[in-house]
């Protein structure tokens, strides 16, 4: 076989190119290896996500995280200093309910410990960011005409949310004894919601569901239905003098807001 000068040059170029590719594929001298700098042909090591199993302990830790959210909400509401005059009654309810939530948090965490899990002793981060922070921002906005009324509405909505959370976990908890323990607390939250509704709307006809003759919308009811609902809640806050505000949708904790075993308080 005769190799021409031209073939020799082609072969040389091919060798150089192949060497370059191989050098890019493999580890290089003097370069620190990192899974963040992938090399062609080398599978980077990955870190698996921790297991996100929804257990009885996770459901109860989540309930505890909601109790701390309620405590934070009442603390913030009382610190605003707007629950005075005609809202002094709401302030008294807020203080009592905040204390009740502390008791509930301890009771739920005792159940969590009984299951051999770590208690959860802070507010649910996602629900704080999604519900509480925007709600407080709306209530304290300059345009808001009646912050005290809105504090009461927010408290009522959070009590409803807590009621629904406990009622909802009855169908999710595996242990019937835990279902009863959760429901016992849920019934307390339900009483809170009813009493706040009575404080906000004291007229006797608003115990059940009625429509506002001015707006045609349902008025706040102490006993809104025969059966406890699990549907999403809506609360309109930041209402200006004309009554225009922002409606927030509140839903019970879901897969993206549960206090899984690997979630810890900051």
């Amino acid at each position: 076989m005769t190799i021409s000068r031209r073939d020799l040059l082609r072969l040389g170029a091919l060798s150089l190119g192949t060497g370059g590719v191989l050098a890019a594929c493999g580890p290089q001298a003097g370069v620190e290896e990192s899974p963040n700098v992938p090399s062609l042909g080398v599978a980077p090591t990955t870190t698996a996500l921790p297991p996100a199993e929804v257990t009885d302990a996770v459901l109860l830790r989540t309930a505890a995280s909601l109790e701390y959210l309620a405590i934070d909400a009442y603390d913030a509401a009382l610190d605003l200093g707007v629950l005075v005059g005609p809202y002094a009654g709401v302030a008294a309810l807020a203080r009592r309910f905040r204390d009740d939530h502390r008791g509930h948090a301890d009771a739920v965490n005792a159940l969590v410990k009984g299951l051999g899990a770590e208690p959860f002793e802070c507010a649910n981060t996602r629900l704080t960011e999604s519900y509480l922070a925007p709600a407080l921002a709306l209530i304290t906005a300059d345009e808001t005409a009646d912050p005290a009324a809105e504090v009461a509405l927010l408290a009522h909505a959070l009590e409803q949310l807590a009621t629904q959370t406990y009622q909802g976990v009855v169908a999710a908890l595996g242990d019937p004894a835990l279902r009863a323990a959760a429901l016992r607390i849920g019934a307390d939250e339900s009483r809170h919601a009813a009493l706040l509704a009575r404080a906000i709307s004291p007229a006797l006809e608003t115990i059940g569901t009625t429509l506002d003759p001015g707006t045609g919308k349902p008025r706040l009811a102490a006993v809104p239905a025969a059966f406890g609902s699990l549907s999403a809640l809506q609360v309109t806050l930041g209402r200006d003098d004309a009554g225009a505000g922002t409606t927030l949708a509140l839903d019970t904790p879901s897969l993206n807001s549960l206090a899984y075993a690997f979630v810890a308080c900051a």
Binding site: P176, G186, A187, S190, R198, A226, F227, L230
Partner: peptide
């Protein structure tokens, strides 16, 4: 059955609170 009875309990607690008021 537990879910149905639970939905009754939360409303009966409301009834009790309202009646006390």
């Amino acid at each position: 059955a537990a879910a149905l009875v639970a939905s009754i309990v939360t409303t009966e607690a409301r009834h009790a609170a309202v009646l006390a008021g």
